[in-house]
Design a protein around this nucleic acid. Structure first.
Lengths: 120, 120
DNA sequence: CACATATATAGATGGTTGTCAATATAGATG
DNA sequence: CATCTATATTGACAACCATCTATATATGTG
């Protein structure tokens, strides 16, 4: 039961240890998904997402900047990365712009991780 | 109800739009988590993880290489990244090394995403 | 023991990313 | 309208990353 599939006689010239596995993610899907994960693969962006998720749709850039030792353009850049990847939506409210988390995307990512757990 | 918290009189010199939000992730936690997400922020590594998750602990490197147009050292590198981040464990089984997915880590990541959804 | 196969390591290189300073835009208000 | 505040854009630079080629290690087999 703990033996490798190659313990079976090989007929082809090219060895095939476990020929039964097939990619479920095609290249395009995997690339898209990688871009999505990349957007939250930065400590500052994770913390920004953390902050925004607590704000009930009422968090502006200046609320965020206050928590970091980074310049305004850098925070603006990170917000853009999160927005472009679909993690947040931003809406102008007079002078400031309020941000909120896109719950659907986070939920979809949880589904992907779940698939990798089950193997099916 | 849809008004910003700054609609309240300001007493300090520095404006505070939404002073109530606080980071729940400290810098170390966020950095660690970012490294973890970074490991799956690459299309090839996502596809490798996908393949390994289907193999029931019986997938070797050669099973993986076959699915990509990449050299063996490159696949070996990606496997190392996944292993170092804790996504897979690898066990020598004679000539080959069989890989399996670390379900606990995937589950923990789902918990993080869940926290970002709820805001609590 | 010689050789084939699976995997790892080292070093080089081109591409991407995070950050900053400087500047621009645009809404609100005295 | 002049000014302040919030945000975006641009361009530069250093750090990091993915990939390759070449080579090494180690296990199994004739």
């Amino acid at each position: 039961m703990n033996k490798h599939i190659l313990d079976v006689p090989i007929l082809t010239t090219r060895t095939a240890c476990n020929p039964s596995i097939r990619p479920r993610l095609n290249t395009d899907e995997a690339s898209q998904m990688a871009l999505t994960f990349k957007a939250i693969s930065h400590p500052v962006r994770l913390q920004i997402l953390d902050l925004i998720s607590q704000g009930d749709g009422l968090v502006c850039g200046c609320d965020i900047e206050r928590h970091f030792d980074l310049t305004q353009p850098t925070i603006s850049h990170h917000l853009k990365v999160l927005r472009d990847a679909g993690f947040i939506t931003s809406e102008a409210q007079g002078v400031w712009i309020s941000h909120k988390v896109n719950v659907e995307l986070l939920n979809a990512l949880r589904g992907v991780l779940s698939m990798m757990e089950n193997g099916c």
